[in-house]
Amino acid sequence: MSSTTVSRHHSGFSLAQYVTCLNGIVWREALRFVHQRERFVSALVRPLVWLFIFAAGFRQVLGISIIPPYETYILYEVYIAPGLMAMIQLFNGMQSSLSMVYDREMGNMRTLLVSPLPRWYLLFCKLVAGTAVSLLQVYAFLLIAWFWDIAPPPIGYLTVLPALIVSGLMLGALGMLISSGIKQLENFAGVMNFVIFPMFFASSALYPLWRVQEGSPLLYYVCLFNPFTHAVELIRFALYGQMNWISLAVVVCCTTAFMIGAIYAYDPSRGLVRRGPAGGEA
């Protein structure tokens, strides 16, 4: 061991080392995504089924009045497109947390957690990596949707990007928080039933909130307090070059809260300490 190496051990990490770590984690997540083509296809098929079948079928049933950010009557397909973009991110966030549970069961997660960089930073890098993957999926969806006459203003493709980043971080952080509480991969089916479906259906993704309010005031308030609703609205407004400040505030606050919760849960002296060693070990 050289003396230079030893002396370096007594110093902190440089900014370049933090960036290298971030690049490495994003790169690995992208490689895994590329290797799992079926994941990419299923991530796209899901919203497209909603768009091509559900929305087409309900076009005549669910009329949409002129509500911000729309300036004219719109087709139902146009209305649900932002909700489907958020749905892609919701599923991706849960998929990332699924992979964290899988990694933990298979042992890969240990490679990450024994890195000398701060654990909060490692989790943040995982979150960024998952969000980056979700962006690829959303833009692929937008490309296909364009052929289906869902064409926001050209500038919308750019202005929606920050909104997608923020909403992707929120949904990824939520997935990370959930993954910290799941002990086995089998338990993840519960996440589908108790998290993904309620969040999606009790939101403004499929129908505007004023319509929900007419049908059930209680459900209206549930939808209003659902963070996913605000992710959808943030994306919807940004897609038309506008900003929904309330939704932005809610999404940022929820991202922070979920991330703090995940960091707390993955702290070795707290969350992980309650678990036993991996199967077969003692």
Binding site: A16, Q17, T20, C21, N23, I25, T111, S115, P116, L122
Partner: peptide, 10 residues
């Protein structure tokens, strides 16, 4: 990947 987790440049 392991090297990146330790901040070692590519």
């Amino acid at each position: 990947y392991h090297a990146a987790l330790h901040g070692i440049a590519k």
